[in-house]
Design a protein around this nucleic acid. Sequence first.
DNA 1: GAACGTAATGCAAACGTTTGCAATAGGGTG
DNA 2: CACCCTATTGCAAACGTTTGCATTACGTTC
Lengths: 361, 361
Amino acid sequence: MPGQSIDSVLKMNIFKLLHWFFGGALYMQSKKMKLADLAKLAGVSTSTASRALNNNPLIKEETRNKLQALAKKHNFSLNAAASRLRLQKTNVIAVLINFDAETEQSIDDPFLLKVVSDINLAVNRQGYELLLSNSYMAGDDWHGYFIDGRRADGVIVVGQGKQQARIERAAIEGTPLVVWGDPKTQGEYAIVGSDNYLAGCTATRHLLDRGARRLLFMGDPAHAELAERYRGFCDQISKEPEASASLLKIDITSLAAYEVINQTLLREGLSFDGIFACSDMVALGAMKALKERYVSIPNDVRLVGFDDIAMADISSPSLTTIKQNTRLAGQVLVDKLLEQLKGDKPDSAQLDVELVMRQSS
Amino acid sequence: MPGQSIDSVLKMNIFKLLHWFFGGALYMQSKKMKLADLAKLAGVSTSTASRALNNNPLIKEETRNKLQALAKKHNFSLNAAASRLRLQKTNVIAVLINFDAETEQSIDDPFLLKVVSDINLAVNRQGYELLLSNSYMAGDDWHGYFIDGRRADGVIVVGQGKQQARIERAAIEGTPLVVWGDPKTQGEYAIVGSDNYLAGCTATRHLLDRGARRLLFMGDPAHAELAERYRGFCDQISKEPEASASLLKIDITSLAAYEVINQTLLREGLSFDGIFACSDMVALGAMKALKERYVSIPNDVRLVGFDDIAMADISSPSLTTIKQNTRLAGQVLVDKLLEQLKGDKPDSAQLDVELVMRQSS
DNA sequence: GAACGTAATGCAAACGTTTGCAATAGGGTG
DNA sequence: CACCCTATTGCAAACGTTTGCATTACGTTC
């Protein structure tokens, strides 16, 4: 009958469709192969398979190679969740961007992002993975969230912040922990950072050497790192009889810097001839304000920044600045964290900085 | 006897020591409390405890509150590894920074970092965590590594790259996947990105409107996104009879831009009066070279960038640019990924761009 | 008071690894 | 051939959750 023939055509197509579906598209996500399956395929026990994949010398090299080849052939990967559960170890390092109660806001300082990026490299080089987190996710109980929660084996905190209670608490509770911040701060935890005092001295001395006498510090000494830079700044100025200093306390953004320089110029005219900015972004904000009012850099005002972000080299005039070695920082941060995972209690570390002289001074 | 008394004193001290040791310092890292312990404390079964903490309405509200309070009191957190194993779900989204076989090198374009940062926000807002990864860790078999390996539930790829084989493969193998790139590219996967063609048109039209006639495009059309921008560029120029165009094919770095402009000026003099740079970093590199040779911006050369990074506003002259909405991009990327986790197959999405007019044009 | 319905809770299996210990194989020695 | 030694492999338990199903408690209805 005609009806039947149509029916069977339909059926055939449906079959084809199903075949394609299950044999093709869905085949890919068919039951994920587990270690036991791999073992069966190789004709060994799961224990042998496990050891073989982990390169355990207990297993004959021949067997090991065979299993590793088989695993590669079948795109087999171990279930990390299961491993972590069994081993009580995650092979993950959490990086915690630490902001002060700021409204949920993404990072805009390129320097911090660079630090994260360099930490990422160092973490990978050690065979760990990187969980990018922030106070929003981790809440206040960092130890509970990361360590007890088996989300990471240790934590790197980027940004000391103004209040260090949560860091201190996590450290006391036994969280393997390293902080990027001011290494002179005393606490229960290891801190890696530049020698901010020395850097402050160097930058200021450089300004003085260039003939500046009425100096400005732009930044907020409430931050531990900036406090050190400011201390170096003040110390150097006190050594120079004719030099005077003042402090422009601002948020660490280029916008704040731009505005405060504008206001200062309006109010007092050109009451300074040298600026030590606490970051390159601040320096560049200041530079913009100065240029708009036709203040010549470096003739009228010498300008030194901090960080050596990419823009420091591109701005015009290019920006003299203190270079922080983020690459090394990432390395050291991770090394110190891994030491803690081994049970040691590493000290804080000061990294050398470097004055990069460019046109702005 | 005297001997005994000494003995007992010793013993007492040892006891004290042990007490301090286990009751004090080590107490902190004493056996991590597990769900069963919490349940015992509350006098319920582990199943009830589990359900209570997960707010399962099967459990009486009173019991739920009690358990949640108890958990908070004891800083209890569920073992994520165990949950993930049992649930076959990680609640993690991997973000994969995709570079082209470049030597192990950290990102330096602030724009990409901004994208990552905005993705991070969006991911968190959905209650997921963010695994920051790269091709170095993930190898070629992304599906195996992330999905089968139960490291993440889905992947967001930042940077389409020049070769898309690995992306395609992962998509075919069923990886929930979204890419930040050129949404016009056809493929097995959803792509989110700006409308680069339109953006190219807008930027170029703007240059033409400002009177530029001999235009330069700086960038490498081998990248899908840049190809679209270039296409828009060419289309607009072809509509303007007297306008001419040329292409400076360079890496997307400010340094490359600086050098190529320098060379061009040396070789040909000022052979152009308008530049469309494929990124702000490129634009700023070009700007530096121009300023050093006293080419006036925007009088002699009008300059338009792309991205609207923070620096665009601070440079002087400030940089006219095409703003990409990274905030929204993060949101959309995550939304589309979550759709896939639900089983849907979302389409690519084009985001609107905006011409931000500043002094450079 | 038996039967039933509903709300709340408990039991036990399962997720996929890793590893201490037991077991086996194979080869050399007395 | 019995014995032992070593090199290799297998067995089974454990890691800490979640959840289908069974069970209990308790009030209601006939």
